[in-house]
Amino acid sequence: MTGEQPAVVVRDVRKSYGELKAVNGVSFTVAEGEFFGILGPNGAGKTTTLEIIEGLRRPDSGEVRLLGESPWPRNVKLLPRIGVQLQASSFFEKLTAEEQLRTFGSLYGVSAGTAADMLELVGLADKANERENRLSGGQRQRLSIACALVHDPDVVFLDEPTAALDPQARRNLWDVLRAIRDRGKTIVYTTHHLDEAEVLCDRVAIMDRGEVLALDPPAVLVRGLDAPTHVTLQKGVLPVAEASALDGVEEAHEDEVSLTISTRRPAPVLSALAERGALDGLQVRTGTLEDVFLGLTGREYRA
């Protein structure tokens, strides 16, 4: 291990399908041991970017280095060191969950015991003997992730691993991903869940229309945004006019159920509300990646 060498280097990568520029000059570097997220709406070019790095697609131009090597053409030396979960799950036909893992494991020379451990890790131990096509969407997703991790790779690529997962499974998967990260592995993953990326990622790249719009740690992105804090109250505890007049309030408006106050100085606003005893149904929401996305693209984020 050189330690200094980045796990992934992407330099001005471009890929077009006919007229469509799926990836249009993307550059970034992922350090070894980093948890890197790629965010963006449908068709942003996330999968294309990821698969170019994995060596599944060939870029039209630009350079990719994966663990110091070029992934294209198929680089057999790299393959045991990377684990990939494709966006569409890919399984052998008519095999049970455990058999799938064992088969994929055998492609990397992994023992059958490891396969069983992996099932445990993703919480599928009780489904070991269930055929893949009889698993639920989320269970299949977890199996697919287990198949990507079975050979203990150094760099893990996950394409929307938390899509189709219920909140509980999502959180369990977060724990799995953090555990992998804590073992010094590098994770590059795509997601539509901005809140999740905020919690998990060291850095995120926000993509849209084949381009990277922003690239920073989530906290930096949110702070840099200078987005107002939203304070929400139950409707009727305070007239809108009175709320608008409070010190520090930029804007206040009311809908059927609640009163929302926007402010960049939440402290005086909150104490003023407390003085009036108007704290019923109080919720405070600070800026999020969603606001960042809105600010960058001028569009509401829709996953």
């Binding site: 060596g55 599944l56 198929r74 393959l79 990377i82 494709l86 890919s90 036909e93 994929f104 492609l107």
Partner: peptide
């Protein structure tokens, strides 16, 4: 069926 179900791509990623 392997090509359609992306098994071929997955195998291609294995050594």
């Amino acid at each position: 069926s392997w090509r359609r179900k992306q098994v071929l791509r997955r195998i291609r990623l294995a050594p």
